[in-house]
Design a protein around this nucleic acid. Structure first.
Lengths: 357, 357
DNA sequence: ATCGTGCGCTAATCCGATTTAGCAAAGGAC
DNA sequence: GTCCTTTGCTAAATCGGATTAGCGCACGAT
């Protein structure tokens, strides 16, 4: 079918030189090894005319580098949430002429082992180990064969692997400040976790860190959080239930929902009792899920910077690949990516506190 | 750092045989080439003890097959909608010991060219060309170098490439029947396209085919669609606007929304005028987007079978890879994947037609 | 003329497998 | 004893590049 691929030998023949010379010229080492201008031009022209492209498989075999990185996740690739993470990784890789292998473990460590093996069999130059939601993971042992980076995950035990994570603590502060700046000082309730540091779902790094940031910002402002409700799962129905429960005993002025889906449930609960967002109750949330701009009024939320996380992970991976992989270097660095506030329509000054502007 | 990988030569040495023999045994051709039981056992044991795994890069160079397929899309991978398509493809590939390269073109044909090149440079065994939403695409010429399949896309010009698509026409019938079976015969309106065959957004294969199915099912039942509204974009806000507009002049009994986001907007419009779903107005939709089960009442919708689409595409690709790539074989086959109805809470019998059950 | 020295290029090896062709030893026929 | 088979295994070539070592030539110095 397709005409055979053009190889270095073809180029060499067309230029009337040896494969060695052609290789030297094309790898830019012609000068260094004293190839004449004339020959250099001939080779370059031949390569161009024949549309020569080096076979990366061959290069991979000889040099050990395949210009390929593996992106292994529990279920990120196919999570509707974090596709942007892949996108960021994809583009960062593309910028450097690298391709991405994608693999999913679904949390199954046997699958993970197999997947990492398959990637090593294909001589990937590096690995990104990603998690759909921020959490601590057990770093598989086979990892150390190639440079690797944790994405949206922290190692259970100390490892030399660097990690890239959203700056959740600062996000917590950001959310809190958004309310404080609107003038809220009373009746601020949390939905999804809190108010105490122990009221968090297990395994959720995000919950803990967001809560830390929230408490810190309010603390600094001398404001006390009025209360909070945990949710078994951060889904709309649980947000709805938690908010309903809250409304039975309290009259909130503002809600900090721990994610947008919870906020969606909260909207429904508020609507049920005739409370208007943001006039009666302000709502701020986290993630910037697409629904945040679909529900009305549009939700003000602190965005998870998926795209940047993906990019950053690959960037860090490349410096890791570049590094001399000499001795054990202790603890991997943790990179925090800022979470920007998406100001929309769900925050207003509290009714009582709306004097002359 | 990591101990050097175990190679075939290591196994051969450990078993006290030549690399040839080791290769023969491990590739299962030992019997055929008269290798003795004794030697066979020695090789097998050595390979096992050393945990030998063939280097796929090397195999790729020698045999030309890399057990890798490329998944090229406009923006599927990172679309929150169609991640399941990747998942299906990933799992189908994994079942056969294949890995997936992911690439996005973002509709840029130059990027596409580069990406396909990069994949060929890595000797992929086959390609999936996917589109985020069903549409016709211009098939790049470089494609013919390897087996390929179109996913969620139809070729602009006839090609020998097979295509895998959701069965949208049948989905249209399914949606229509869901209403008919609930007893709806009057006041059925379409939101997003229709009622005429010319009232469809450009480029949207889904719109046309869904409309065909809807009209057919109603036609067969002797029922006339009461009317329809097109939407410039199938987003909630346009669904909201279109439904509002409709409500100004009509009193619908049932709505067929062309996707779930439109339905979300329709819900809002109905809510605004105090109409209850499904008691006053039944709603049925397409896609089974996550919000379909988040909004209240939960939306009955005809699901886009993303996961199955991805699986099917890879399955078809494998038969394509298996085929003798001999002569030009005319037109590629079109595979349609069924779209199942997700019955939830948004359909009820029309008020007048709710007699004794 | 002889030797040394750059210059400009190439032969040969390697990466880790697969695959073809063929060799040495044992067994059988005559 | 010779020749032919069959058996059981291996040497060598190959895939497409990168890389090391070194060859042949021209030129200048002696």
């Amino acid at each position: 079918m397709s005409p055979r691929r053009v190889t270095l030998a073809d180029v060499a023949k067309a230029a009337g030189v040896s494969r060695t010379t052609a290789s030297l010229v094309l790898s830019g080492r012609g000068r260094e090894l004293r190839i004449s201008q004339d020959v250099e031009q001939r080779v370059l022209r031949a390569a161009d005319e024949l549309r020569y492209r080096p076979n990366i498989v061959s290069v991979g075999l000889r040099t050990g580098t395949t210009r390929t990185i593996g992106f292994v996740s529990d279920t990120v690739a196919t999570s509707r949430l974090a596709g942007d993470m892949i996108k960021g990784a994809l583009e960062a890789a593309r910028d450097r002429g690298f391709m991405l292998f994608i693999g999913e473990t679904e949390g199954d460590s046997e699958l993970e082992r197999l997947l990492l093996q398959a990637m090593h069999d294909r001589q990937v130059d590096g690995l990104v180990l990603a998690s759909m939601f921020t959490r601590t993971i057990k770093v598989p042992e086979d990892i150390t064969n190639a440079p690797a980076v944790l994405l949206n995950a922290l190692p259970e035990q100390p490892t030399p692997l660097p990690a890239v994570l959203p700056d959740e603590v600062e996000a917590g502060r950001t959310a809190a400040r958004a309310l404080l700046e609107a003038g809220h000082r009373d009746g601020v309730y949390l939905i999804g976790a809190g108010p105490g540091m122990r009221d968090v779902p297990p395994e959720s790094v995000a919950a803990v860190e967001r809560l830390v940031g929230i408490r810190e910002a309010f603390g600094d402002a001398g404001v006390a959080v009025a209360g909070g409700r945990t949710c078994a799962d951060w889904q709309p129905e649980y947000g709805l239930a938690a908010t309903r429960e809250l409304l039975r005993t309290a009259r909130p002025r503002a809600l900090i929902c721990f994610n947008d889906r919870i906020a969606m449930g909260a909207y429904q609960a508020l609507d049920d009792v005739g409370l208007k967002v943001p006039d009666d109750v302000s709502v701020v949330s986290f993630d910037d899920h697409p629904i945040a701009s679909w529900i009305r009024p549009k939700l003000t939320t602190v965005a998870l910077p998926y795209y940047e996380l993906g990019r950053k992970a690959v960037d860090v991976l490349f410096t890791e690949i570049g590094r001399d992989h000499a001795g054990p270097d202790g603890q991997g660095e943790v990179h925090r990516v800022p979470m920007p506030l998406c100001s929309r329509e769900s925050i207003a000054p509290p009714p009582a506190a709306a004097p002359a502007g």
